[in-house]
Design a protein around this nucleic acid. Structure first.
Lengths: 217, 217
DNA sequence: GCATTATTTTAATCTAGATTAAAATTTTTT
DNA sequence: AAAAAATTTTAATCTAGATTAAAATAATGC
């Protein structure tokens, strides 16, 4: 009985925003839920949304499908949380990149590196946002909003670089679309090979930004 | 009765490769099926795979869902055909670009323009390949093969440009991943606005290739 | 060790939406 | 205009996989 209440409390915490865990039980719950989200992201990226059943996700964790309902209300919410998590890591990467200052171009490069490091690193896999439209309206709107805001933030970064002369004049909207597309597509071809992860982190940020640099001369 | 036979014939033609239509009836059948595939691509891109029912697709065409079974065996085949079509337009764009010759960089630029023109133009919408993993094995393997071959062809193009000095040395695999990701993601943000289509065709190829050009000097 | 709470399981439901069958309509052929 | 073929519809099924209920197990606090 109380477990439902506790679960509800945890859910409430999530729904209300970012309330700190009040005790170690909630922390454990959230840790487990994170494992669920990672497993789900892995399955969604590898088997597609319709191709992954809750059983697939549960199997990865050595659980049985109904156990997942202890952590999420339903499959829709599972997807939703995966997407919120994906948005979070992007925002986090950008936040860190900006906090460290430097020219616009430097910040862009750093953001790219951080975001990519996360996508191919420990914290991954990050779910590709393929099924936003089948989220329920409130969730869909929220994720779209997060996604839109991230794009706008990136465009602001580009504008900053144009303003400080480190980035050449360009259509920031289209440039943003291009670069974000590349990043969002990574999970399509990256499947956990460490060597490729290394290479991606080393090469990708440069590839994505080498066309941006202003001609200094 | 015979209608099934005729449908089978049409299916057989597709399965066997590229047999020309023997009479106008088959042409009409194929035209209608193309309309079905376009409608499906539109729905999949807008509503996600799991979010689009066959009824959604049928509604777009003023049909009823079972009517679609006259054109495709099942939903899986509908997706499969959408993806084959997507692969076709990419191959077609590359073929045209190469046929017109020029330096490696010129060919790359032309390919990008052609492919993008198709994606935001009349022939669109082109389905995003989000659900390859849930295709049945033979279909999945075929689509993956088409996709892989296209990537390799693009990498060859890059290598040609590097060889002839029009493109600066780079990791062609990663560069290909980056550029293809941008292109594949287009349907995520392009939703049929003609003005944006114009802009995309004008800006995108340049954005994607401006980092490639060798420093001539 | 007992009581309480948290977590997971087993065993049923439940349902949207894919699929099929048969009949009706429309088109083409002769 | 009748017959044959092509296309679409209406009316049922059918099923995988999500979801729920209740019970069982494990963990925690006292």
């Amino acid at each position: 009985m109380k477990q439902i209440s506790s679960a509800k409390c945890a859910f409430g915490a999530r729904e209300n925003g970012h309330i700190m865990a009040r005790n170690s039980d909630e922390t454990r719950f959230q840790q487990q839920r994170d494992r669920v989200l990672k497993a789900a992201a892995h399955c969604f990226n590898r088997k597609g949304y319709s191709g992954t059943s809750l059983k697939d996700v549960a199997d990865m964790l050595g659980l049985t499908d109904p156990a997942l309902y202890y952590y999420v209300r339903n499959k829709e919410e599972l997807v939703y949380l995966c997407y919120v998590r994906a948005a979070d890591v992007g925002r986090e990467a950008m936040y860190r990149a900006i906090a460290e200052g430097g020219s616009g171009l430097e910040q862009v490069r750093r953001y790219l590196r951080y975001h990519i490091e996360i996508m191919v690193g420990e914290q991954g896999p990050i779910a590709i946002m393929s099924e936003i439209p089948s989220l329920k309206p409130e969730h869909r709107d929220e994720v779209l909003e997060l996604s839109r805001r991230h794009s706008l933030d990136f465009e602001k970064l580009l504008e900053r670089g144009i303003a400080d002369g480190s980035i050449q004049t360009c259509d920031v909207r289209m440039t943003g679309n291009a670069i974000m597309g590349s990043i969002n597509w990574i999970p399509k071809w990256y499947h956990g090979d460490d060597a490729i992860a290394q290479k991606t982190v080393a090469e990708f940020p440069e590839i994505l930004s080498c066309g941006l640099a202003a001609n200094t001369g």
